[in-house]
Amino acid sequence: MALGAASATSGSASRVTLARPPRKRRLSHTQVRRWVTAYAFLLPALVLMAVFTFYPIIMGMVIMFYDYTVFEPMEFVGFANFSRAFADQDFHKSVLHSVEYIVVVPVLQILSILVAVLVNRSLPGITFFRTAYYIPVVTSTVAVAISWKWLYNSNGILNYALTSLGLIERPLYWLTSKELALPSVMMVTMWKGIGWYMVIYLAGLQSVPKELEEAAAIDGASRWRVIRHVTIPLLKPYVLFATFMSVMGALQVFDEVFVMTGGGPLKSTLTMAVYQYYKAFGAFDFGYAAAIGMLMALMILVFNIPVFRMLAKGGLKYY
């Protein structure tokens, strides 16, 4: 369908230029024709992106200065949405939880590096294990959340296992107590992320030239010293890249929180993205939601400045 549309536009567009005499003599007829062809190929993508990607980026920056609910006409309010956010207790809570969520980053990265080192060898069946580790990544968050909610159930298998091992005395309310809900959801984020970051680190480990490690080993360096002084420094750009993505993901966390707890109990897992969602599609308070989104984007920027600095300073120099 789109194919037909593209060829039709290409045909009509070139006919238009054929009818018009070339403005400059230096531009040959075939050249103009080529330009038109190029834009005909780009047209479907450009139109769709103009409507659904570029327009929202620009319009989002506009509506955050407006009081915009679907029920009333738009009204310009200046920075009122931002001052409202600074005074909003629930927003403060959500910022705090999103920042707490960054705890996930170091744990997740260390676990992923360990798993990548574990599977970075040729053993019979290693592809099977790599695949098994990647399954949580390709599964929908809803399926993941349903599985974990079942594990976390107060009569669930996790409580049973921990009680019978004698680690806890009575069942824990993983997702329904104020204290445990956020860490419990963080566990799921880590569990789902390991496979993803494993692949990144695996690519990193496999890009380390074998000769370097061998040369160090021949020079009499112990296995640990080779890892410490050859492998880890060469892996640094990958660590920084993954950390950057991970920090961004943590500050914007939405899916697993929304599906598992919906921000509760008692707003104890309310994160910025979940709060923004409720303001936008629960309360239809679009202007305020856009302002929250902008504050979220700014926070991501601030938190990633140190990572960027390191990328510029040390990380990229190795390559």
């Binding site: 659904f52 990607t53 929202p56 980026i57 936008a280 989104g293 984007a297």
Partner: peptide, 23 residues
């Protein structure tokens, strides 16, 4: 066009869902 495409990969689009819903 290149610049515009790259910018969508780096620029935040915090109100994307809202505006697309309205569109």
């Amino acid at each position: 066009i290149f610049l515009a495409l790259v910018s969508t990969l780096v620029l935040p689009n915090p109100a994307g869902m809202i505006i697309n819903f309205l569109t």
